[in-house]
Design a protein around this nucleic acid. Structure first.
Length: 495
RNA sequence: GGCGGCGUAGCCAAGUGGCCUAAGGCGACGGUUUGCAAAACCGUUAUUCGUCGGUUCGAAUCCGACCGCCGCCUCCA
């Protein structure tokens, strides 16, 4: 059985078949770069990162496009509203483009730390202005859009399929009280393709309709079609974007080309912090940099980025995820367990005896791979896939305890860690280095620790255990773990 | 108000009609090991899946009611 994905369009799991044999185009709605990325971004982008990694694992040549929204759109569709990029720029006294650049770098930095593979293409909205204007022109020509007072709107009434993704109908929406009515629009449900800019609006571009800026939904249509074609295989994004963002994207795109815009719509669920929606006003807004550094009043410590990643993978992408200090702590413990085993396997590989691959182990590994793939094929059940990693850890530790375990056997185990834990889940690294401190500092520290370890060794030899324990306590308090081997030797490592 | 989702052990979480007398992780508790630890390994930790009814030979899984929680409907991942 192959990969099945839950398609929001049909509200059920469907067998995934790409448009072109062996090739997949994935588009994921990227961030608006007006602030540091937060835990919500992490869930979304880690989820889709795993999708891309798994598609590649299955052998698909996967093109992954993720936009960078560096154009300040208005925060609502009425004539009044705030431009969040411009607001942030004003607050930080920077040019909006400088601000966008700064937070774009910040975003990539955070995603790198979460071990998300870089998108194949990260197109900027600001760099695709002519394409956006062209798309609007076509929509006007085809009769789906109209100009009004320097702005251009999409006429929803002309597009019968509007609402097919989110399950809404325009009549219901019209009866709602929360749709702002703009005098320029023929209908309150019409949405902006181009907005006329006020003279004081910082980011604006010239167009056939005068100075202005593109509507919020336009860039994704334009950039996804430019780089992936008029029908793309997979479009991902957060659940909150289902409506209106994705609904509008579909209308714009399909009105232009007639072809189905997206074949599989994937939406990831939202995060909460300590049980409630994360929001700046709720004092539970945690950026990734804060989480990685432990600098937030709701966090008791710094969290290794891959532990954050592991927590995300512990639940399903379509389930809501609650971040709490306790949950992060539990994820970190589990992450450390996997990491310690992987390191131990790699360390012992060189010194293990020569010999054939253990048949029993080989069968178990095959079984693990099968369980893993079955889980991932079932709409990316990372929770079960992750459980396979723990099964692998247990197997590995049993093998490590046996002197007769061969190099080839350990190599096979390591290889499975790399392929499934590293390649697909992204929680196992290719190499492990203590990257928290520089090599020079590490060397100096190592000399001091070695000296203390020598003291402790001598204490133990003269059976002065209270002194030995005292030294160990000192080291433990400095996050240095001391391990005594059966043969009387001791070793240490950074926690 | 409209729409959607969720409620599984101390905590996180998979499972969504029989293989479930319910994965996995964290935690806790025993045991092995150890001078003592740590780590690791072995074992224990939900006869039960919010509550009450119903459908069925059979339900955590389907239906209904109720209780509780959350989200979307506004830029938001």
């Amino acid at each position: 059985m192959g990969l099945e994905l839950y398609n929001t369009l049909t509200r059920k799991k469907e067998v995934f078949r790409p448009l072109k044999e062996g090739q997949v185009g994935v588009y994921v709605c990227g961030p608006t770069v007006y602030g540091h990325s937060h835990l919500g971004h992490a869930k979304s982008y880690v989820s889709f990162d795993v999708l891309v990694r798994y598609l590649r694992y299955l052998g698909y040549a996967t093109t992954y496009v993720q936009n960078i929204t560096d154009v300040g759109h208005l925060t609502d569709d009425a004539d009044e509203g705030e431009d969040k990029l411009a607001m942030a720029a004003q607050r930080e006294k920077m040019h909006p483009m400088a601000l966008a650049e700064f937070y774009t770098q910040s975003y990539f930095e955070d995603m790198d730390r979460l071990n998300c593979v870089r998108p194949t293409i990260s197109p900027r909205a600001s760099g695709h202005m002519t394409e956006q204007v062209d798309l609007i022109k076509t929509l006007i020509e085809k009769g789906y859009a109209y100009e009004a007072n320097g702005s251009v709107y999409f006429e929803v009434a002309k597009w019968a399929d509007y609402g097919k993704l989110s399950g809404r109908n325009t009549e219901e929406m019209l009866s709602g009280t929360r749709v702002n009515v703009s005098a320029e629009k023929k209908s309150p449900t019409d949405f902006a393709l181009w907005k006329k800019a006020q003279p004081n609006h910082i980011m604006q571009w010239s167009s056939p309709w005068g100075m202005g800026y593109p509507g919020w939904h336009l860039e994704c249509s334009v950039m996804s079609m430019k780089y992936l074609g008029t029908s793309i295989d997979i479009h991902g994004g957060g659940l909150e974007n289902q409506f209106p963002h994705h609904e509008c994207e579909i209308a714009q795109s399909e009105a232009v080309h007639g072809a189905p815009f997206v074949r599989y719509w994937l939406h990831n669920n939202m995060v909460t912090v300590d049980g409630v929606k994360m929001g700046k006003s709720l004092n539970n807004f945690i950026t990734l940099k804060e989480a990685f550094a432990g600098c937030h009043e709701r966090l008791s410590q710094a969290y290794e980025p891959l532990a954050v990643r592991q927590l995300i993978l512990n639940s399903h992408y379509r389930s809501p995820l609650d971040f709490s200090d306790a949950a992060l702590h539990a994820a970190l413990s589990g992450y450390n367990r996997i990491t310690a085993t992987v390191i131990a396997v790699r360390k012992k590989e060189g010194s293990a005896p020569e010999g054939p691959l253990d048949e029993q182990t080989n069968r178990e590994l095959d079984q693990f791979r099968e369980t893993f793939e079955t889980a991932m094929n079932d709409d990316l059940n990372t929770s079960v896939a992750l459980s396979v990693m723990f099964d692998l850890v247990r197997l590995a530790n049993r093998l490590l305890a046996k002197d007769e375990t061969t190099q080839r056997t350990l190599n096979a185990v390591d290889s499975m860690f790399r392929k499934l834990g590293g390649g697909v889940l992204g929680i196992v690294r290719e190499t492990y280095t203590a990257d928290r401190i520089s090599a020079a500092e590490q060397n100096r520290l190592a000399k001091l620790v070695d000296a203390l370890m020598q003291e402790r060794k001598e204490a133990r030899e003269r059976k002065d255990f209270s002194e030995a324990d005292r030294i160990r306590k000192t080291l433990t308090e400095s996050d240095i773990a001391v391990t005594d081997e059966a043969d009387g030797t001791s070793s240490w490592s950074f926690k």
